[in-house]
Design a binder for these strands. Structure first.
Length: 691
DNA sequence: ACGGCGATGTCCGACAGGCAGCCTG
DNA sequence: GTCGGACATCGCCGT
């Protein structure tokens, strides 16, 4: 179908044509022919990666804007939200307002109303807005749920809840659910009372093969051939360690290949940027940097975001030839490559190696073949034996993806969403809650089971026991604290843990930060660090020696060791240890540390807010201080200095050592005096800032 | 003859990823 | 269950 034939605004069509889009892909054509643009019915679009789901969504969204109704586009990852946001910004040319709302932005501060035509957001953020600012969505016409097959994961429940809430609040809303190919798209469509389009069509043909042999030898062969041929490769492995080692070894191979002089220069520039991402660079930075000059890179959660983006962009530019990635990349940003190799089709999971789901295989393999550049995408899976090859052919290449199931039906998850429903006055009787949960995918799949009702009633009970809700006759009302917990978006269990401990220690003489950190880790939100056997003894000994810095005795539960270790790492961070020190001492990579610190900061804030409501004033004060220290990685004495924009932990310490101990001291100093400490530009900026 | 270094062998132990808050008058 | 990595041993080479 030619783009001109699409029943949408001319301006939109012109814009697409100016980007070289002249024809619609078959699934997009089907979407138009389905009639949903006119009848406003819901639609489930279940097609492979890169089959043009985003453009399909754009057509529906623009159509909605034409009718004066705005659109919300929900994605599972922040990086993805950002990517879509940048993509949609081209509609600003047509006069549409595009907005991005994700958790780590402080843009939402002081905002009463958000003015948007298309809002791009993560599922959790969207749910959070829905809890406290539902009026933002008053004009909503279309809700796009991207990657809805993730209903099958831990993150899935919020997807279901979001849909059901939107449907309740805005009965006229049109829902477009975008899914990878799954086993039961018909169930999804039936639940949503939606039309269904399923298709296996891809813009670039995909050849899927399995190769048997020594895995590294195969990788070498494939890489050499591909690179000599001017192509690039994405290799999926199952562990971070594996990614790094393959990147290093293949880099050695590629080093010998002659590179154009300017290519080498550009690679050297990237190398420099990678090294300057952290100051001073860690050994991981150095390792990545040494791969990059050879044209390879590893990509996993241990990298800081700056490095990750750098790697992705250099790959897109064709400078980096091979990326060796953990599954981060399969679900993440759009990064196609002519060839994809799956080195590890198994993954370690609770004590054993298991074959990954077909769904995940399809996601990884779906990265093969760049639209507009390649005629064919190659996907190669490596097997050890002929037997395994046959098995892989059968299961993955010829097989169907699994059906997806709701993961909402467990008490902690239900509790979380039930509190939210009550707190935001969404449902306030047992009957209305039951009715609501019956409208979710969980209700659709399990609503007739006996257990269904019990799970929900048990969750309500617990919330009542924790004093987050109370009964007035048959009405369920939130307590003040219950409302705040729901707004903070923390788990009721976490809040309960914090409250019971903080109440106990409020009267203590001092609040040791290690103890508070240990408390913060006692939450469902914080993924705890792993303790190995060698560390176990060391940690036990350490716990004994710092016992008076803890708020409670170690033997209170089985997670204590992991919690202590995690808290211990945070403690080193706020004790001004460098990333490299932390990497060496605790084997925690910078990316991982960042990610956990961000959670810790949010939890510290939440704990202080809870304390505020409970009137635990000393806790409030100490937790506020701790929050700042976590954010900046400094000892208490540096807090006033890091409050100045442009001054972080390193500069603050330098200033302190030179005798500048508070912002006032800087005011009196000349730029000349500060230049040796901060560099001229920063010194000037900071003087300006202080004026 | 010795030392240094790289290639090969052996055993041990660790194993993906990542969302959520800031509220004023 | 597998793989990488640490460590040990062996063997080649140069001085």
């Amino acid at each position: 179908m030619l783009i001109d034939e699409a029943p949408i605004a001319e301006g939109f069509i012109d814009l697409l044509k100016s980007e070289g889009i002249t024809e619609l892909y078959p699934p997009q054509k089907e979407l138009i022919e389905s009639g949903i643009l006119d009848d406003g019915k819901n639609l489930v679009l279940s097609t492979p990666t890169a089959s043009g789901k985003t453009l399909a969504a754009e057509i529906v969204m623009i159509k909605s804007l034409e009718r004066g109704k705005n659109a919300v586009y929900v994605v599972p990852l922040r990086a993805l939200a950002y990517e879509k946001f940048l993509e949609f910004r081209r509609y600003e040319k047509l006069g549409h307002k595009i907005r991005l709302e994700i958790g780590d932005m402080d843009s939402s501060k002081y905002k009463r109303m958000l003015d948007f035509d298309i809002l791009v957001t993560t599922a959790e953020k969207c749910d959070s807005i829905l809890r406290s600012r539902p009026e933002w969505f008053r004009e909503i016409g279309i809700l796009v749920m991207d990657e809805i097959h993730l209903i099958n994961t831990d993150r899935g429940p919020v997807y279901e809840i979001l849909i059901s809430k939107f449907q309740r609040l805005f009965p006229e809303i049109q829902i477009l659910a975008l899914s990878a190919t799954i086993g039961n798209p018909d169930e999804l469509a039936d639940w949503l009372n939606a039309k269904l389009i399923r298709s296996e069509w891809r813009p670039v043909k995909l050849t899927e093969k399995v190769k048997v042999g020594d895995k590294f030898e195969e990788l070498k062969r494939i890489t050499n051939k591909e690179v000599a041929d001017g192509g690039q490769i994405l290799i999926f492995v199952s562990s971070k360690r594996g990614a790094e080692s393959v990147a290093e070894k293949l880099g050695e191979e590629l080093r010998l290949i002659r590179k154009r002089a300017n290519e080498l220069n550009e690679l050297r520039n990237i190398q420099k940027e990678i090294l300057s991402a952290l100051n001073p660079p860690t050994r991981q930075c150095k390792r990545l940097a040494s791969c990059v000059v050879n044209g390879t890179a590893f990509h996993h959660s241990g990298l800081v975001n700056k490095q990750r983006t750098l790697i992705e962009n250099s790959f897109k530019k064709g400078l980096i030839k091979v990326i060796i990635a953990t599954p981060t990349l399969a679900a993440g940003v759009n990064l196609p490559s002519r060839t994809v190799v799956i080195r590890d089709i198994k993954r370690y999971e609770h004590g054993r190696m298991t074959y990954i789901p077909v769904l995940e295989y399809k996601q990884q393999v779906g990265r093969a073949g760049r639209p507009r550049y390649d005629k064919i995408g190659n996907a190669i899976t490596l097997a050890k034996t002929d037997n395994e090859r046959d098995f892989l052919m059968e299961r993955y290449i010829l097989g169907e993806p699994e059906p997806i199931y709701s993961r909402l039906g467990v008490i902690p998850v239900l509790r979380f969403h039930i509190l939210a429903s009550i707190a935001s006055n969404f449902a306030n009787t047992e009957e209305s809650l039951l009715k609501f949960f019956r409208s979710t995918f969980f209700g659709y799949q399990y609503g007739s089971e006996e257990r269904f009702q019990d799970l929900i009633l048990d969750s309500i009970d617990e919330l009542k026991n924790w004093n987050f809700i109370w009964f007035r006759d048959k009405f369920l009302l939130p307590t003040k604290i219950g409302v705040r917990i729901s707004e903070l978006y923390i788990d009721p269990q976490t809040a309960h843990n914090y409250i019971s401990l903080l109440k106990k220690v409020e009267s203590m003489k001092w609040f040791p930060s290690l103890g508070l950190l240990e408390m913060l880790c006692d939450s469902l939100e914080m993924p705890l660090l792993w303790v190995n056997r060698w560390e176990e003894q060391k940690l036990l000994a350490e716990i004994e020696s710092v016992e008076d810095e803890l708020l409670r005795l170690p033997e209170e539960d089985s997670n204590f060791l992991e919690r202590f270790k995690t808290a211990r790492v945070f403690y080193d961070w706020i004790d001004e240890y460098s990333e490299e020190d932390i990497l060496r001492k605790h084997r925690v990579t910078p990316g991982l540390l960042n990610q956990k610190l961000q959670i810790a900061e949010w939890l510290a804030y939440s704990a202080s807010e809870i304390s505020k409501i409970l009137g635990l004033n000393r806790s409030v004060k100490e937790l506020k201080k701790l929050e700042m220290r976590i954010r900046h990685g400094v000892k208490e004495e540096l807090i006033p200095l890091v409050m100045i924009k442009g001054i972080g932990r390193v500069r603050a310490r330098r200033l302190w050592n030179a005798g500048f101990k508070k912002p006032g001291d800087l005011k009196n100093a000349s730029v000349r005096r500060l230049t040796p400490l901060l560099g001229e530009r920063t010194a000037e900026k900071i003087k300006m800032e202080l004026e």
